[in-house]
Simulated scan of single mutants.
Amino acid sequence: MNGPGPLPSLHRPMTDPFGRTISYLRVSVTDRCDLRCFYCMSEDMTFLPKVDLLTLEELDRLCAAFIAKGVKKLRLTGGEPLVRRNLMSLVRSLSRHLATGALSELTMTTNGTQLARFAQELADCGMRRINVSLDTLDAAKFRAITRWGELDKVLSGIEAARKAGLAVKINAVALKNLNEEEIPALMQWAHGHGMALTLIEVMPMGEIGAGRIDQYVPLSLVRARLAKQFTLTDLDESTGGPARYVRVAETGGKLGFITPMTHNFCESCNRVRITCTGTLHTCLGQEDASDLRKPLRASPSDELLAAAIDRAIGLKPKGHDFIIDRRHNRPSVSRHMSVTGG
């Protein structure tokens, strides 16, 4: 008697060539943003034509296909996701997977500028936590980093999120000679409001018109400085992302370090990213790309799409090799972070 045949591609779990199970999907819903953070974008960015973007219905179907294949955590990113028109219709639709238990977490990374409008609705859709990108509490520095952003607008959004019951984690990029001296105060502020803080090294992605050598500060140096002032205890835990966490005894809060430059996090990578045009990137720091828009639109059935996903996962590299190119001062990866998804 023959045993059961191979699991159909539609529901086959995604395991890469190195035995890592893919269970975390990050989806960029737009490359547009209402800020122009100088380490992320050039000031005169040329965004994708709207006709090139997947519709919200296509994004919903694409996410559903990944959930059927084992994705348990889904993060919406941008650009700034909340500037996408009618985005909440997608969030409401995706929340059905939380109700069935197929998805364990639906979350978002945002710059916070639109949170005052949408925080309660996000919570009502089953979102329980969000990440907010915020590099400084100094209004003048914030405007300099974002080129025209208003700090008060973001702080109001964070407060609205907390009032809605969302757990907020602050993400801050460490920037040499700009906010590195402010990191202790930023950490104490975040922890004082019950929020974790994660520090991130500048990543060499996309041409931004400024030298990243001048921006880059290794987090090993930042941690050493913090250790002179605070008691840091390593935590053996993960939220499914690339951060390594410590507990800060003096504040009681959590501090994370994302170190793509000084110590990559590839050995346990369970993540893939989809752009707003339907391109699948299995590694943030490689130029790999697989087109999912074509099979998505080729058939109302998901067989072609599932097969394309399997092929792409089968090519996932072992890791990235981010470098700051000091000779030519050029990015390791040509695409901008706003295109890839944060």
Rank of each mutant, 00 (worst) to 15 (best):
K169P: 09
H193Q: 12
D124T: 04
A174S: 14
M195I: 02
A196R: 06
A185L: 12
R143C: 15
D138M: 01
A160P: 08
G149S: 13
I145N: 11
A174Q: 05
A123I: 03
A144S: 14
A196Q: 12
T146W: 09
A172P: 03
T146G: 09
G149T: 05
I170L: 14
N171V: 03
R128I: 03
L155R: 13
H193K: 11
T136A: 04
G194C: 08
A174L: 07
T136H: 00
R143Q: 15
R143V: 11
M127N: 01
E150D: 15
E180N: 09
K153I: 15
Q188Y: 01
A123E: 06
P184I: 09
A164L: 09
A140D: 15
A140S: 14
L186N: 13
E159H: 15
D152V: 08
V154L: 10
H193E: 06
A164H: 12
M195D: 01
K176E: 11
C125G: 04
I170N: 00
V173Q: 10
R143P: 12
V168T: 02
V132S: 04
C125H: 03
W148D: 14
A185T: 11
R128W: 09
K163H: 14
H193L: 06
L134V: 04
G165Y: 04
N177P: 09
G194T: 03
G126Q: 03
R162C: 12
V168G: 00
K163I: 13
I170Y: 00
I183C: 04
R162L: 13
L134G: 00
G194Y: 03
K169H: 07
E180G: 05
K153T: 15
G126F: 03
I183K: 01
G126L: 03
R147T: 07
I170W: 08
R147P: 10
V154Q: 10
V173K: 10
S133Y: 01
A164E: 06
T136I: 00
R147A: 02
V154I: 12
D124G: 08
T136E: 03
A174R: 06
A123N: 04
P184D: 10
K141W: 00
A139D: 14
R162D: 06
I158Y: 06
V132T: 04
A123P: 03
A123R: 09
G194K: 01
N179V: 12
I183W: 05
D152L: 12
W148I: 11
L137S: 01
F142N: 05
V132M: 00
L155Q: 13
